[in-house]
Design a binder for these strands. Structure first.
Lengths: 250, 250
DNA sequence: CGTGCACTTGACAGCTGTCAATGCCGGTGG
DNA sequence: CCACCGGCATTGACAGCTGTCAAGTGCACG
């Protein structure tokens, strides 16, 4: 993914102006690359600056007792990682790359700048945070109520939806750099059980999943199983501050 | 709770100045009271304005299939309710009062004003949102990994911690306006099972719970069972914009 | 005193964690 | 080319937590 595209995704929901995007890029640090499996932030350590993910996959997880962990979010290009740490002195999660990744550091001070000088950008940041909250709410519902097969179906649908945003031509077969262990840590079961559930979905003719490659065979069936609550993605941003630079109305 | 106290709680984490608090109050609408059991927002309906809760308890829940629901948050005095709706056109959860409550409407436009004219207040709002996110992350972990007894223990500890913030003298016995059905919808089990789990905790001598009154008999034991991850509550707000009015340093 | 709601209790089945063993596959080194 | 190895995935057995159903209890309220 080209860097501009990632930045555009980051700000798409508020319709920020091109000039504002440039300012945002001006606040970011240089591009840095890491190999797969790199731990970028460790839970409990003193917080650093948030990171803007530009290429590759990463994930945030919270360590539990005895080596277990819960993955709380998959990061895709365009995502800001480590944002919640702004409110704490120690990292609230562990951030690790799942593939080779490219990131830019977003210095803490740049967020102060945003709030002081670029209110629309700050508001965009706020909206992104609210969306994350809703995503977590949704996952919380599934975790508490649904059985593993449905949680897996919902996970697949949600990941594909997010991938679609940056690649509208994404087919029904695509790469997912997640092992069954990762999936287990995401949907809250054992890696053992994930194997059973995947085979269950396969035998129902819904998906095919192997070697990091996932194929959705029956999307309506998968959606039906996932039974995600309807969520209106259209955003009402009429309350946002007026654009800073542009002459045209938003 | 006196209104000022609630407002102070709302903004405590960023050390907002007294003048800013007054501005915040100026943005809010008049005080409105509702009896227990009032539905203030209904999931899926067109969004209205967020509400600042000043007295009483309320909860946000997401309806699931067949009348089931997941309670995603308990609102206590000082909480802003319905904030995530700012990013959507339809309510992402149902907000219902658990006791008699008093609220003030925070018009959508007032958030635009905050971002334009009171960057520190906007940043405070942002931080609150990040905290909510972390709370949800934590609950997600428990929902996926812990058995019901531990989830209940964690719930009790967390609620008491939040009550302590507004009443530092809170003893080990306090009122909780939650039925076992509510608890079930919070920790993701059946109301039936909640009864069993409460009796389990009781027989272990950890708590006593009846008639809306909860007594913690063995706090260390309860904390041990809950096994909440250590979370540094101190906030690093050095990146925040400078105070708007005051002359003193923050 | 009757009604309704909240809570309790018991039985049973089902999903899922755990343990252990096995299979598969890619990479490494000879 | 082949043997070995380690990580990942599969499979089976078993126990435990938990949902469901159903019946019963107790309390508050009118």
């Amino acid at each position: 993914m080209h860097e501009d595209e990632a930045i555009v995704r980051f700000t798409s929901l508020t319709g920020l102006k091109r000039e504002e995007l440039r300012e945002l890029q001006g606040l970011a640090g240089p591009l840095v690359r890491y190999p797969a499996g790199t731990v970028l932030k460790e839970f409990g350590e003193v917080t650093g600056d948030p990171l803007l993910l530009l290429e590759g996959w990463a994930c945030s997880s919270v360590p539990m007792e005895e080596g277990a962990r819960q993955i709380v979010k998959i990061h895709l290009p365009g995502d800001l990682m480590g944002l919640p740490n702004l409110a704490y002195t120690r990292n609230v999660d562990t951030i690790m790359s799942l593939t080779e990744i490219a990131v830019r550091i977003m210095p803490r001070s740049s967020f102060g700048t945003m709030f002081e000088r670029y209110p629309r950008m700050a508001a965009a940041l706020f909206l992104i945070s609210l969306e994350e909250r809703v995503t977590l709410m949704e996952r919380l519902c599934f975790m508490g109520r649904a059985e593993a097969a449905r949680r897996l179906a919902a996970l697949i649908v949600q990941i594909r939806d997010r991938l679609l945003k940056s690649d509208p031509d994404l087919g029904l077969t695509f790469r997912i750099p997640l092992t069954q262990s990762h999936v287990a840590d995401m949907i809250g079961t054992s890696a053992n059980h994930v194997s059973r559930v995947i085979q269950d979905l396969s035998s129902r003719g819904l998906i095919k999943w192997g070697r990091g490659k996932l194929t959705v065979l029956d999307m309506p069936g998968l959606l039906d199983l996932a039974a995600l609550p309807p969520r209106d993605v259209a955003h009402d941003t009429a309350w946002l501050p007026r654009p800073f630079f542009s002459s045209e109305a938003n």
